[in-house]
Amino acid sequence: MIQDILVFLIVIATLGYVAYSFAISLKKKKEGDACGGCSGCSLSEKCSSLTVDKINIK
């Protein structure tokens, strides 16, 4: 029973994390920043509107 409760909490927390990450990426898109800060992307650290001065390609 305890194991089931813990599993339930872990799965809920994971779903919450995924939903939060998704919401953040949507928010960034609304702000015109397509970068989702993906953990595997080599540009993720600097790909934020605060540090990257984007090149505006016409």
Binding site: K29, A34, C35, G36, C38, G40, I57
Partner: peptide
């Protein structure tokens, strides 16, 4: 992956 599609959308 999603990150690449987002990059194409941006560029």
């Amino acid at each position: 992956c999603v990150a690449v599609i987002a990059a194409i959308k941006k560029e």
